[in-house]
Amino acid sequence: MNAQFKKGVLELIVLESVRKRDMYGYELVAEVSKVVDVNEGTIYPLLKRLTNEHYFETYLRESSEGPPRKYYHLTAAGILYRDALETEWLHFSQQVNAFLKEHRE
């Protein structure tokens, strides 16, 4: 898949993944990897950026094995941002689909 495509929708996928329940980094990477084949390293910087922009809150929770894990929680601002991105995505994909359909005929 085109890297530029991935980059654009990755934010939306990450935000959507965390919406239902809080996740820690590795879990989130695994979840996102189900949808798009992405370089695992690039998801962490994205998480960092979204956290810096206050769309995520993080907290540490002990795990049964290994060191405590950092969980990501979607904030109210994050939910709003996710909704905006979804609307944008739907509109955009609709337009692209309509365009392609139009040209196919």
């Binding site: 980094g25 590795y26 990477v29 695992e40 690039t42 962490y44 060191p67 894990r69 950092k70």
Partner: peptide, 29 residues
């Protein structure tokens, strides 16, 4: 330290899943 801890944990979890360190790191690009 926060960033490094996250990557270290990712590598640990990948190696626990049966991958070698080199393979886990290669996935980071």
């Amino acid at each position: 330290q926060d960033i490094l801890a996250e990557y270290a944990q990712h590598i640990d979890l990948r190696t626990a899943g049966g991958l070698s360190e080199e393979e886990a790191i290669r996935d980071f690009g």
